[in-house]
Structures are given as structure tokens and as C-alpha cells.
Simulated assay, not measured.
Amino acid sequence: MKALARTMMHNRRALADKAMKAAITARLKAGKDLVSPVCIYSIAEAHGVRVTFNDINMEGMYQRGSPPRIHLSSRRPLPRRAYNCAHELGHHLLGHGSSIDELRENQLVRPWDVPEEYSADTFAAYALVPTLGLRNAFATRGLKPETATPIEIYRIACQFGIGYSTLITHLLWGEGMISRARADALRKFTPRTLRAHILGSLTPNPLIVADEAWGGHAIDAEVGHLLLLPSGTVAHGDAIASIADLEGGRLFEAKRPGLVRIDRPGTEWAAFGRIARTAYVGRAEFRHLEDDADD
């Protein structure tokens, strides 16, 4: 049994190493560095993979063909969709066959026990959150993974466009930056309770926090999402609207699809917001197109 366990661990390490290298190569071939957060949909398109959001009750699907396609559920939360896209892109770039990934909560087999699923998950984690980028995210905020608060972890998850629990899993198993006890302590907090702590009240609306260390990359959101931006931030456009000034920053709500320039007068802090329709269905690259005036 011990020999079998050692063999399985060795195999997993080999799979993880291959998937991590594939993720690095995928970013570089798409013209991306190994530090900054990325739009995974643009990386997929750069590799010739067409990404579409569909009204389907599953995580996603990879379809080999000409062109290869990734189908994602528009019903899933925005961070989950990005992760699912990276997962399906992993199937493509690692040479796997077509696959259908059902809802995680409905899976009878643990995905990490299936080599191709484990590889695709590992690829997704490193494609979205490269090691150098993760270390930089903590360093620029003066934080350490073992002592950062749950809210600080939440902010870094927002920066990379992934879920809070996904980041905890990657810190534990992918990077070995936190202990299992630390991961268990962080998981006692949910995104819902963290939103309540940050905003001072409960809300069902998803919240994206872009702090001073955000780094200038685009903020992806959907209509109805809340955005907590640095105090004094101004939006140049009506896709988002300021609704409150809080102790932690200026709170905005995404009002309609479109692009919006965001900056903080008197400072170098600036970003673009890309707002999509709620539960948008269609090609990923068109998700933030503005509504027609005649609609």
C-alpha cells in the first residue's frame, strides 16, 4: 500500500509539473507575462479556441474540432466561469479528448483522482495565478500568506479573477504557501460573510474589490455586480455608477454593459471596467458590448 501511495504521488507530481509548464507556455505564446492577471478568454482565442457562454446546467465542455471550442455555463458565478475556461483550455493544450465537466457538486468521482481532470485543474490554477504573480500580489501589499486576513485573501482572489476558496486551495496544494490548518481557518469564512464584513451589511450581489495594488488591468464584472474601488475613484461613463463612500473605498454598481474608464484623480491609479450582461449568452469576446439604443 505504501509503495502504491508513493507511485500515485510521483505520478501526480509528474502530471502537475507538465501542466504547470503548459500553463507558462500558454501565457507566453499569447503574449502575456508571468506576473499579471490575465483574461483567460483572450488567451484561449489566441490559441485558436473559440469560447462561448451557453445557458447550460454544467461547468463547461471542451469540443475538439476545427476550430476547437469551449462551452461555458452562463449560470455559474463569474470567477467559476473563468476557472472553467482555463480548465477546458488545459484539456485542449494538454492533448486531451473532448470532455464534458458536470457541476462540481454533482461529481461522483473526485476530479483529482482522474489524471486528465487533475492535469486540467492544475493547468487552470497556474494559467490564472502564476507563482511570480501570486508572490508579487502579496509582496506589493506587504502581506504574507500565513498571516494575511481572510479579507486580504479575498482582495487577491479578486485581482486574479478567481474564487476565494479556489485561491485558498491553490495556496495550499499548488504553491505550499499555507498550512492545512491555515487553509481550514480561512475556509470558515465564505464570500457572503466577507462581503458583509467589507460592506457593513449583507448583500446577495457579487463584490469585486480593486484596491490600490490592483495593477491597472481590466476589471471584469456583470450588470448588478458591486465594485469597491479606492476612495476618490471616478468613472468616465455610465456603465457603472457610484452608490456610496465607505471606509474601505468608493462603492460602485455595474448598471449596464459596456466599457468604462476608471481612475483616481491626482494619482496614477487607473483601470478599465468591462461590464457584461447578467448571465450573458454568446461569444466571450462580445460579452461587454453595449446594448443597442433601439433595444
Rank of each mutant, 00 (worst) to 15 (best):
M1N: 00
L4G: 00
M8S: 07
R12L: 07
L15S: 08
L15H: 06
D17G: 06
K18M: 12
A19W: 01
A19N: 02
A22S: 00
A23G: 05
T25V: 05
A26T: 10
R27E: 15
K29C: 06
V38G: 00
V38Y: 03
C39G: 07
C39E: 07
I40L: 14
Y41T: 14
G48I: 07
V51Y: 00
G60T: 11
M61R: 12
Q63F: 07
R64I: 04
S66E: 15
P67Q: 03
P68N: 09
H71L: 15
P77C: 13
P77R: 10
A82E: 03
N84A: 11
C85K: 02
E88V: 02
H92E: 05
G95S: 10
G97S: 14
G97D: 13
S98D: 00
E102Y: 14
E102T: 14
R104T: 15
N106E: 12
L108Y: 09
L108I: 01
V109T: 15
R110E: 08
R110Y: 12
R110V: 07
P111E: 05
W112A: 11
D113V: 06
E116P: 01
E117G: 10
T122D: 08
F123G: 02
Y126K: 04
A127T: 05
A127H: 01
L128W: 06
L128Q: 12
V129F: 03
P130V: 04
F138N: 09
T140I: 14
T140G: 00
G142H: 13
L143D: 08
K144M: 11
P150N: 09
E152M: 03
I153M: 07
I153S: 06
Y154R: 12
I156V: 13
Q159R: 15
L167N: 09
I168C: 15
L172H: 14
W173R: 10
F189N: 10
T190G: 04
R195E: 07
H197L: 12
I198M: 09
T203H: 15
I208L: 02
V209E: 01
E212H: 14
W214R: 02
G215F: 05
D220F: 11
E222W: 09
L229N: 08
G232F: 03
G232N: 05
A235G: 12
H236Y: 13
G237R: 02
D238M: 13
A239P: 04
A241N: 10
S242V: 13
K255M: 02
K255W: 04
P257G: 01
I262M: 09
D263I: 12
G273N: 00
G273P: 03
R283L: 10
A284F: 10
A284G: 13
A284C: 13
D291K: 14
D294R: 02
D294Q: 09
